[in-house]
Design a protein around this nucleic acid. Structure first.
Length: 271
DNA sequence: AGAGGTACCTGGCAGC
DNA sequence: TGCTGCCAGGTACCTC
């Protein structure tokens, strides 16, 4: 599920319920996530207050008294606030219980997610220190892409999905942004002109921004959050539409595999 | 340094 | 119905 829009939606959704709240207990039912959940997490957290909930790339950061909880949702994770008395379901691996009676629960069937604890500046954590720019910030623009891509022969789709370049562009939105910008996904990153990178940067901001706005519509019933965020139903223009007509030119949309990932594009509109 | 492949894990689905 | 194989929104780490 989680691309950046869902992580952002999650961040906004859980923050009002847990910011300023004191943690009373952490329950780990399954510690075998991407990295083993440290047992010290349980001991360290009781009594600490969550001061802020922020996002860096697809990492959620819960700032506490003496350190920061780092959460990544992997490919199938979701995080929601409920009551501490709610009965856990099959893949509910971890709960953080608060003095308010609320419970922040991590559900992750594929267990590619991660829950980590650091007492240092989280930006310096091994997993975060090499992250590239935030796509919705002013740091991402055509010039930035142009400079970083010189002499790079990697396909543009893999280039924009490289978290050292820009964070948060996952497989769905990489295809969507390249379609909007009219760039063929396998074109070498180093062979794209500045003017086209200006369009690509704008396209990425547009698709991610629209998705966050759509995801925001589900925030109202976030406490019941169980179903999919609203943005999932938004009309994707190429993703999973192979064989269907391009909504711009009518050509049949194609699907190829790039770096073991499905990629969708229009061979007329994208060059 | 850059490029490409592999591994981690479960669930849903198509095809037989 | 039940089995098999493939696919899925991520990313760290390995080799060449």
């Amino acid at each position: 599920m989680p691309e950046l829009p869902e992580v952002e939606t999650t961040c906004r959704g859980i923050a009002p319920h847990i910011s300023g709240q004191q943690i009373v207990q952490v329950i780990v039912r399954e510690k075998r996530l991407r990295y083993p959940v440290a047992s010290r997490l349980t001991g360290h957290l009781a009594g600490q207050t969550v001061h802020a909930v922020t996002r860096r790339g697809k990492y959620l950061l819960l700032a506490c008294d003496t350190g920061t909880i780092i959460i990544h949702l992997g490919m199938s994770g979701s995080l929601f606030v409920g009551s501490a008395t709610d009965r856990p379901q099959k893949h509910d691996h971890l709960d953080i219980l608060f003095g308010s009676g609320r419970c922040l629960r991590l559900r992750d069937p594929r267990r590619f997610g991660a829950v980590l604890w650091t007492t240092r500046d989280p930006e310096r954590h091994k997993l975060l220190q090499h992250l590239g720019v935030e796509p919705l910030s002013s740091s991402l623009d055509g010039d930035y892409f142009f400079q970083r891509s010189r002499d790079r022969r990697v396909a543009i789709k893999q280039f924009i999905m490289d978290s050292r370049i820009v964070v948060g562009v996952g497989n769905i939105y990489a295809s969507e942004a390249l379609f909007i910008a009219g760039i063929h996904p396998s074109r070498a990153a180093g062979r794209i002109a500045l003017a086209r990178y200006l369009q690509l940067a704008a396209a990425i901001k547009q698709v991610l921004g629209d998705a966050i706005d759509a995801g925001g519509t589900t925030l109202r019933d976030f406490l019941n959050a169980e179903g999919r965020p609203g943005y999932f139903q938004q009309r994707l223009r190429v993703y999973q539409r192979a064989g269907m007509p391009c909504d711009r030119c009518g050509s049949v949309l194609r699907q190829v595999r790039m770096g073991q990932r499905s990629t969708y594009y229009c061979c007329q509109c994208q060059v």
